[in-house]
Design a protein around this nucleic acid. Structure first.
Length: 245
DNA sequence: GGTCTTGTTCAGGA
DNA sequence: ATCCTGAACAAGAC
């Protein structure tokens, strides 16, 4: 479910609930007092990277799908939802296996919109500035850092690095400026391709490195390795993805 | 049926 | 204090 583009799809699908009033709310753990939502009206849905935000007049409910989160619209599963919302017209919206958090401060204070890679407010310049603050930063960790590239997950990381021909263990500080810009541009570009391909049901078949056996450019084996401080798996071609160090 | 994983936080040890 | 590791959580795909 996660990665930024999937949250944009969710946001699109729930537009039907905008301006509706919650008639009944349940939460199957202690992370949120669901009674706070009853009789409250949803004024908007927003997102920040992988965060999905349900905005009420005086607070926002933050939903993070983590690895396995799911949702059901106007239906439900056998298990009680982490967050279940029923509206006054008997429609329903249910979230499972997700992390909930109540945000009471203004959203502009809680979020740096310029860090959201798929937002209109995205700023490459600011991302570069953040990356330059750490001279030992590897590109694989930089792309996975939600404060720098909010919305990027392991799939986007691997595909963007493949497209930019950059080895995941390259040092950000060793990349020529044009190459760093190229990496960022590929991350943004692939994020929007991810969105289109996911909607078309063609996401997996378009992967060039992620979970692939061989490089589509030269047919040498794709390397699979635990990389960086984040210890997330990278998939890359040793031949066409250059290691900058 | 076992393994893997589109993610993050936190406790505890070095 | 700081860095690092493993645990915890949770569920569908293969």
């Amino acid at each position: 479910m996660p990665e930024g583009p999937s949250i944009l799809i969710l946001k699109e699908l729930v537009q039907q609930f905008k301006h509706k009033t919650v008639a009944e709310a349940t939460c199957n753990n202690k992370s949120l007092d669901a009674s706070l939502l009853v009789d409250k009206r949803i004024i908007d849905f927003k997102s920040w990277g992988k965060h999905f935000l349900i905005c009420f007049p005086k607070f926002t409910v933050r939903i993070h799908m983590m690895m396995f989160g799911t949702y059901r619209i106007n239906t439900h599963t056998a298990k009680p939802p982490r967050l279940g919302l029923r509206f006054t017209d008997d429609t329903e919206l249910n979230f499972y296996a997700c992390q909930l958090q109540l945000i009471t401060e203004p959203l502009d204070k809680a979020y740096d919109w310029q860090a959201d890679i798929m937002s209109d407010h995205w700023s490459s310049r600011k991302a570069i500035k953040k990356m330059k603050a750490d001279p030992d930063l590897l590109v694989c960790d930089a792309l996975m850092d939600q404060h720098i590239f909010s919305g990027v997950g392991n799939i986007i990381k691997n595909e963007a690095l493949f497209n930019a021909r950059i080895h995941p263990e390259s040092l950000v500080s060793a990349l020529p400026p044009k190459k760093l810009t190229e990496m960022i541009n590929e991350a943004v570009k692939y994020s929007f391709q991810f969105l289109e391909q996911k909607q078309a049901g063609t996401l997996k078949k378009n992967w060039k490195a992620y979970h692939k056996k061989e490089c589509p450019r030269n047919h040498v084996p794709i390397i699979r390795k635990d990389t960086g401080k984040s210890h997330r798996t990278s998939f890359y071609c040793e031949v066409c993805q250059k290691l900058y160090k």
